[in-house]
Design a protein around this nucleic acid. Structure first.
Lengths: 140, 140
DNA sequence: GTATATGCAAAACTTTTGCATCCTT
DNA sequence: AAGGATGCAAAAGTTTTGCATATAC
């Protein structure tokens, strides 16, 4: 995938403003792909690219509505945001070091659809998050 | 299952205080089995069984630690609490009317374990929530 | 030039905490 | 009687909003 750019914003129907580009770039290039608004704010600050926290929240909400970003509610209360890249996936999170792994499992997806159908639901989205200890945290 | 009682609290290692019993009873008998702290507060108020909101939060946290209650982070920011009755289950939520259905699917549980193992994780918990439109909301 | 976005400060909301008083065992 | 629990009020944390100014097209 090429670097996040002004066109990505325009294609999504959003003006290519400086704060939006900073936020998009940070989501795209940061080693940490799942960040809270506060984390994003701090990292931008560190790179001397400060954007007001209120703007970060507004922009993330717009990105979410435009389908550029997904918002997750993991344990811990605050929302975490992730740039939508390839397709759908679920998450595996280490409770000790916070590492986030992404995975996709066809069998699970199929069963989810089957369960929803069984209850008469039209499925529009789902969230599935596994919590545990990652390999390196286990060995310590 | 018999009505929630003082013994349930004592077995869990908690003093059987009046506020705790009120909260436990409400969780047990309310038609709505998944409630936020605020909702619990309002419903107790309606039944003239007021408990301070701060106490509700403290008690719910203790209940959670004692294994009496599960805390969920569904969409919408605030925590929702549910009395632990039978075994583990996942949730299916209607985005329109808020109805919560519980389900359990062995195939999904098995795949979750397999996925965790594949990534070297020791699985300690998981949350899986399906969102959609329930049958009656679809027909309207 | 015009509509929209941003920054700042304040507000709204959820959850936690300090402390004096009260209740359970 | 003693330790722990509660209520109240205040604080802390997260997210939203009003409004004047600045920016993108």
């Amino acid at each position: 995938m090429t670097e996040a750019s002004a066109e990505d914003l325009q294609k999504a129907g959003l003006k290519a403003t400086v704060p939006r580009l900073k936020i998009l770039r940070m989501l795209d290039t940061c080693d940490q792909s799942h960040m809270s608004a506060e984390e994003l704010y701090r990292r931008l600050l560190e790179e001397h690219e400060e954007v007001a926290l209120a703007t970060i929240y507004r922009v993330l909400t717009q990105f979410e509505q435009a389908g550029l970003v997904e918002r997750h509610h993991f344990e811990g209360g605050q929302s975490v945001f992730e740039l939508c890249r390839d397709g759908h996936h679920d998450h595996l999170i280490c409770l000790k070091c916070g590492k986030v792994e992404e995975f996709f499992d066809e069998a699970i997806e199929a069963r989810q659809k089957a369960v929803a159908a069984q209850y008469g639901f039209e499925l529009t989205q789902h969230s599935m998050t596994l919590y545990g200890l990652c390999a390196s945290c286990r060995s310590n």
